[in-house]
Write a protein that binds this DNA or RNA. Structure first.
Lengths: 233, 233
DNA sequence: TGAAGTTGTGATAAAGTTGTGACAAAGGGG
DNA sequence: CCCCTTTGTCACAACTTTATCACAACTTCA
């Protein structure tokens, strides 16, 4: 597997390269837009890690432009590196053909997780890895949930597992025992733990956690995600 | 009912098979992708339990691929088995048509619960199951009863069990003992408790609880739901 | 007519659930 | 090694559900 890392920050580029090499990738680097395009054509990488903030060279070639140019000729997976503040960067980046993004700063662990997720996804074709239920969107890979057009909130492993399972069964009630079994496996889990988990999930995704819109309680029975809460956008 | 269990782990496959057989299923097994597809075509199972991690055979046939191939030609319910560690993949499995999934390890109870839930769900479509009797509608899952076009009222566990039982036997008289046994189980319950229960249920669903329209009393014998109260809407 | 039994009703006690907050343990990353 | 996130544990108040009791009205039957 060959990877191309494009970043003008030498330290970051080296860190990314090192991480990917440790995962068995053959890595090449580029510091600016022009050499990035050259490396891409010469090396034919299987995946590209691309920082969107590149130095202004004489012909202005920022990350988005490179991404677009590459995408015009190839379907090679591209992961964008962006800074946390610019939420717009992300939507724009995805629009011009990027497959995924990583917010700086990030951990090596995150990097390999994203890279492998993207490779998995692209290998399987154009199937999105997100679940939908009304206004709720869950990206299980990233463990992020979004409510309508709001900011995505990141979920913990258990929260994600719970929400994913409820979304799969949206409109149906899952009993307390079923949820405990599914989330903690046989022998683990308890009513208390489930109660807390639901509570934490609600506090993250519900507009007003004290009067839930998405997760409904059926006393004595269990919980369920409302079918199509807020209507399909 | 016929079930097909696909898993290369013989021990697990046998455990699953045993559990399902005890539930009255006729079970066939397959250890790899190719034989899975063959068994599927030959046996025409009503449900498939499919491990996603199958051994790499010469034509790579993992669980997802099998699932997709089957789904291209059939709507037979499919439940995926996957290990807790790589549950990231599971969304993909659901996207290619699986109906549900179970994380390994799991308990037999969980397996049975999921299998039956999936069969129930696919049998009746995406809407939760409701009972009808004249103008009365009962959503046992949600424990909600509706009378005509009125607002649904939520029922307690016992109220729901009582109404469900009466609706299943609409038009028939159920003796007091029969009702007590069914609601509280053998040994539990009493005449008084049943009287109170009927009273509370009436106060919730009857337009005028002092002159009941739905639940009739047959003095000395028991209670019954009128066959078609208010006419079929 | 009167006694026995049953039903509907109301009040109230007992038991169980849920949501909540605070805090301890565990585990990973810098 | 310390800090932070995640997860598990506990106790509590508010509330709902269920059980229990008492009593009047009514029916049945001798």
């Amino acid at each position: 597997m060959k990877a191309l890392v494009v970043d003008d920050d030498r330290v970051l580029a080296d860190l990314v390269s090192f991480t990917l090499r440790r995962e068995g990738f053959q890595v090449s680097q580029a510091q600016d837009g022009e050499s990035a395009l050259r490396r891409w054509m010469e090396d034919q990488p299987d995946i590209i890690i691309l920082d969107v903030n590149l130095p202004k060279t004489s012909p202005p070639l920022d990350g988005f432009t490179i991404c677009r140019k590459i995408r015009e000729q190839s379907d090679v997976p591209i992961i964008l590196l962006t800074v946390r503040e610019d939420e717009d960067d992300i939507v724009y980046g995805l629009k011009v053909g990027a497959d995924d993004y990583i917010l700086k700063p990030f951990s090596p662990r995150q990097l390999v997780a994203r890279v492998q997720a993207v490779l998995r996804r692209t290998a399987r074709g154009p199937i999105s890895s997100t679940l939908q239920a009304g206004k709720l969107t869950l990206d299980a890979d990233r463990r992020e949930a979004r409510c309508g057009e709001q900011e995505p909130v990141s979920l913990t492993a258990l929260e994600c597992r719970l929400l994913e399972y409820m979304m799969l069964h949206a409109g149906h009630i899952l009993t307390i025992q079923e949820l405990i079994d599914h989330i903690w496996g046989p022998g683990g889990g308890s009513r208390d733990m489930l109660r807390q988990l639901v509570r934490r999930l609600r506090s993250k995704i519900e507009p007003d956690p004290s009067s839930p819109v998405f997760i409904e309680t059926i006393p004595g029975r269990g919980y369920g995600l409302k079918r199509d809460p807020g209507g399909t956008p």
